[in-house]
């Protein structure tokens, strides 16, 4: 799961980005991608935002919808930034990466 350090110079922006990403739901699991632990890193510059993330299943049938969701959510809150979603399969996602809230939402806590 993503950790944003309080001493990160872009702490405020990254928190705002993470908050925007709470609106992106994995339609199969009905849980947002932050609580699922799918977002690994956020790279923020003055003009660009890069989201490094994974999917719960490689080539998840709804993967396209999730990555579009990331673009959509960020384009609303950061209209001046070019958004890139970088999908990675390493490290492989597992249930331990979910937040406590995510586990609760999924009924497995």
């Amino acid at each position: 799961m993503i950790q944003i350090e309080i001493n990160d110079p872009q702490y405020a922006q990254k928190v705002k980005i993470a908050q925007s990403l709470y609106q992106v739901i994995d339609p199969e699991l009905f849980v947002n991608i932050i609580d699922l632990g799918l977002v690994y890193n956020i790279i923020y510059t003055d003009n660009t935002i890069t989201i490094i993330m994974t999917l719960s299943t490689p080539h998840c049938p709804l993967g396209d919808a999730i990555t579009s969701g990331v673009n959509n959510a960020l384009s609303v809150h950061f209209p001046g930034h070019a958004v890139t979603v970088q999908l990675v399969w390493e490290p492989k996602w597992n249930f331990e990466m979910m937040t406590a809230e995510g586990k609760k939402l999924l009924g497995i806590a």
Binding site: P27, F30, P61, D64, N72
Partner: peptide, 22 residues
Amino acid sequence: PFIVWNYHYKSLNGRVRVPLPK
């Protein structure tokens, strides 16, 4: 439901509130 949801809401996910596939 997921296939149809994908056609209707893929481009709207994250932008507006959309129904879930179920």
